[in-house]
Design a protein around this nucleic acid. Structure first.
Lengths: 356, 356
DNA sequence: ACCTATCCTTGGATCGATTCAAGAATTTGC
DNA sequence: GCAAATTCTTGAATCGATCCAAGGATAGGT
């Protein structure tokens, strides 16, 4: 009867040891209420039969709680370890989980079919959804599980979605004002994706119809503040990137190919800003001598880049902690929390160079 | 009957829709074999009752496969996102998982009681164990689950443990020889932990009794090669660190307090080596002018540090891929794979300065 | 009409454990 | 020595689904 693998069940052990499965269960889960002699006998039998201990699969069904929270994203799984923002966020999420003994399940999928299935079949007590690029489908799928749930980012227009995010408009405004006050008048904007996998130069109108509210809000924040300084925002080149080196560099190639070269670059993520610094260094453009760069996020890499990056810092650690708290406490209140952002001025921004 | 939450079961939906639970199950799992009219009716009923779809908990028990692999460590969960080596390894593990559609469960625990429980109750199809610091208890617990299993590191003496690791002795030897060939004769070694939470200066004899075979082997590799160059290894200061900035800096404080200052530092991890570079810069000690530093691991940060770090690179990506493959294929063969290491010479090592 | 083939639907068995009310065995009290 | 109290043990019920053999209904062929 020994097929390739032999699944020894608790019941098998019980029978072999001559006790009921109820008692056998107690041996493992409530050893103190089983007479020592019996306990030892059952344990010895289990050992002899190669029983690996109560299978969590069975226990789970009865207990109901998985004791793990799921973190879901649209990006490939490696996003959690590659992207600086995600990394910091995950570090704070994992601290909070450690404190409560909860585990973490990373959920993702390359294609959207898998995504649906992965979300639907994830064994978790709740979801934290990374919707950095605001995929509402992801949010929808997660909500359908009817588990405790919180989105990281207030992208969704749907006010009923519990979410933790930052004030993108105000944050972008801070960045724009900082540069404008330094005297800059010729700007360029590097955006996060507006459409699925879109990249290339776009118009303000196109950006306004962005699928992703986060991108849209940051852009509004930038342009709104700039126009307050009398800058003709329709002239500001806007280049859509997918937040990677290639598209950022392509964007800068494009932006600096024109006659009116900008003196200030607004980047919607630190990652983009850091790639931009690389590009500028390779093109012997001084930062902040010739061009100032301001990022968005406040990742630690920004503090040690060359030059250190001026950026709009999100309270990432605090957001992570709150997200975990929201899942674990699940007080039903689908709260939307708006966290404050902070302009961190470092060396990548400086006064506008005098006109040559 | 409506307690705080109402758990709607598939059976409830089936009854309400007037079909058997078997048919209801098919509506969700094999929609194509259910007559359309029935299918729609059941789906509508489910919707109306607030049924969230088949609960994976139930499905799991029947199906047996979780479709997730567990990655376990002794460190806090945030280790996966903070430590450079872990990050690179996790990135490659997650790539491999993405390719097969598997999820990742991070398992850890602050204290060892939790550890046991977390390992025992983790819902996974197999374990990859990060035993960078070679905790054999962790390995033991994971093996007891009798799931596919592979340790990252060949620490364990137990040859029956499936493991993927590098040739620590040979790798350390490469580093030592490189420096010796550059003319260095006064060395210092920064080790990974030898005992639980130990740190401070230790003797060679103490290090030889290290709990952790990885630490021991690297030390053997270092000292073995050095003695081949006629260096009196008993005079080489060995300082045990816990792989963080504080203990590395304390180690260097101690090492450089002596009269015979070393010209070459062998660090058992890149993380330590990078902290050492920071310390040296702060003390205005030129690298490699006054002191050469060689790390171990080959993390990407080493390529961009100041100066770029000479190191013994592990094929981290390849190891991650193989680990996942080993779990998913689980061909029973508890193989021990020894991966080759590679000396990567960058700017942190140079000729020994002429004696002053 | 009757028989057969097709297509759904049914209900029971199963996955692997936990829990609990009730019963058996042992000990204690008088 | 018998009833009561105590302590374990038992076996059935449950968790939430999937699977499968068997049966029912419908349609088509003659």
């Amino acid at each position: 009867m020994d097929r390739s693998t032999r699944p020894v069940r608790l019941a098998d052990v019980a029978k072999a040891a001559g006790v009921s499965h109820g008692t056998a269960s107690n041996v493992f889960s409530h050893p103190e209420i089983v007479r020592e002699e019996v306990r030892e006998r059952v344990k010895a039998t289990a050992e002899a039969m190669g029983y690996a201990g109560p299978d969590p699969k069975g226990r789970l069904l009865r207990a109901g709680k998985v004791n793990a929270i799921g973190v879901a994203t649209n990006e490939p799984l490696s996003y959690f370890f590659d992207d600086p923002f995600a990394r910091v966020m995950m570090a704070s999420i994992s601290q909070a989980c450690d404190a409560t003994g909860a585990g973490i399940s990373l959920v993702s999928a390359a294609n959207s079919e898998h995504l649906a299935w992965n979300i639907q079949s994830a064994l978790v007590d709740g979801f934290i959804v990374f919707c950095i690029e605001g995929d509402s489908r992801l949010v929808e799928l997660a909500r359908e599980r009817k588990l405790p749930f919180v989105a990281l980012d207030l992208d969704s227009e749907n006010q009923s979605v519990a979410a933790i995010g930052v004030d993108n408009i105000a944050g972008a405004g801070l960045a724009a004002r900082h540069l404008a006050e330094l005297g800059h008048r010729r700007f360029a904007v590097l955006t996060l994706p507006c459409a699925e996998d879109g990249h290339g130069p776009i118009t303000q109108a196109q950006a306004e119809t962005s699928l992703y509210a986060g991108t849209r809000d940051r852009l509004r924040g930038y342009l709104g503040e700039l126009s307050r300084f009398g800058i003709e925002v329709s002239q500001v080149p806007i280049y859509e990137t997918v937040n990677d080196e290639e598209s950022v560099w392509a964007g800068l190639d494009h932006i600096f190919a024109g006659a009116e070269k900008p003196t200030a670059i607004l980047a919607m993520s630190d990652k983009m800003a850091l790639h931009a610094l690389d590009w500028l260094r390779r093109h012997d453009i001084a930062v902040p001598g010739d061009v100032s760069v301001v990022g968005f996020d406040g990742v630690p890499e920004g503090a040690t880049s060359k030059p250190p990056l001026t950026t709009v810092a999100q309270p990432i650690a605090e957001m992570g902690h709150r997200a975990v708290k929201a899942i674990l406490e699940n007080d039903g209140a689908s709260s939307r929390q708006l966290m404050p952002v902070d302009l961190v001025v470092r060396a990548s921004s400086g006064p506008c160079p005098v006109k040559s």
